Simulated scan of single mutants.
Amino acid sequence: MFGIGGGELIFIIFIALMLFGTDKIPEAARTFGKVMANLKHATNEIKTEIQKSADVEEINSSFKQVTSSFTEEVDKVKESVSVTPPDFTSNTLTDATSGINEIKEDLESLTGPIKRQR
């Protein structure tokens, strides 16, 4: 027990009896017990706070890791989706216009006899 032998323990008890007297020993023992309980309680609180801090740091590092990988994936998707806008030159527009005019003429020729029957 704390590296104290039997003879040393008896000597400590004898010194305590000399200092405090037989009337005050129980009160001193209670006070010592309360001090030790408070010390143990404070130590446990410190351990709990350290553990919570470590858990929070672990959560923060995990969160940063997940968000960084998510950001990387989003950037990859942006890069793969980003396409240069089509080059609308006058040639492309005239081709589209001529195609539309051809379809318009075909519709007119199909609906012409139908419109006349009414």
Rank of each mutant, 00 (worst) to 15 (best):
I50G: 06
D95C: 08
S98H: 05
S68F: 00
S68K: 09
F11R: 11
I10K: 11
T84R: 02
E49Q: 01
S69W: 00
G33L: 10
A96D: 13
T84F: 03
I13D: 09
R30F: 12
H41D: 09
E57D: 12
K24A: 09
P86C: 08
H41C: 00
A28Y: 07
K52R: 11
N44S: 08
G33F: 03
F20I: 07
V35L: 11
Q65V: 07
N91H: 10
I12T: 05
I10G: 02
V77E: 13
D87Q: 08
D75R: 04
N44K: 13
V77M: 15
I100V: 05
E102R: 04
K24V: 09
K104S: 07
T22G: 14
E73R: 14
A96G: 12
N60Q: 08
S98G: 06
K40N: 10
K78G: 10
K104W: 01
D87C: 06
K34L: 02
K64L: 04
Q51G: 04
E105I: 09
Q65R: 14
F2A: 13
F63W: 07
A28D: 10
L9H: 07
N101I: 14
S90Q: 11
V77D: 13
K47E: 07
I114W: 05
F14K: 14
I13E: 09
T92E: 13
F14S: 09
L19W: 07
G99L: 03
V66I: 04
M36D: 08
T31F: 14
E49L: 04
E58M: 05
G99E: 02
I103M: 01
T111I: 15
S53T: 06
L19K: 13
N91L: 08
L9I: 15
M18C: 03
F70H: 12
I100C: 03
E105T: 14
T97E: 10
E73Y: 01
